[in-house]
Amino acid sequence: MPNHTLNPDNWIDNYSDYLFNYTISRVNDREMAKDLVQDTFFAALKSMKNFKGDANERTWLIAILKRKIIDHYRKINSKKGQAEVRMSYNSDEAEGDWLEERVSDPFDKTAEDKLENEELGDAIYNCLGKLPEKQANVFKMKTIEGLDTETICNELNITASNLWVIIHRARNAMAECLEENWL
């Protein structure tokens, strides 16, 4: 008997930020990340009937998203391959200096840093997922989006002191959740 069910009406509220962060840390392009997340939700809608209920909703959505990200890289890599064929070295100094890796990834910090960031981002969203919705929401707006107190208060119709109480609880819970591996 299936243990999990799908509820597409709540997908955006529950998973869009997690999926978006997961994507942007891997594709480094905000617009592309948004498109991939949207494609993921659409693909998920189409294949809802194939959902067996073995995995939870988020795991299932992430599995679809991973495929979308791989497809995205396949697509740009095939384009990159064509570009590399046309590449020519004009200066004598550079002749024969085939640093293809550098061409394919000019913004590489270090692979290890990047990997650590991806994992940390996932861990942060995992912890955020454990917070009550309001706390997670206020924490995201204040800490990740960097919105000012007044804007958040107006939007959520709460007082400033209310906001700081929520932030305090959220920060405590986040620190506790991240403490073991990341703080």
Binding site: G121, I124, I144
Partner: peptide, 21 residues
């Protein structure tokens, strides 16, 4: 916690983007 979150470069959708989605 502040330092860790800053280091992570974590991002989320803006309100309008989430609504559009």
């Amino acid at each position: 916690l502040t330092k860790t979150i800053k280091f992570s470069d974590v991002e989320c959708l803006k309100k309008e983007e989430r609504q559009a989605l």
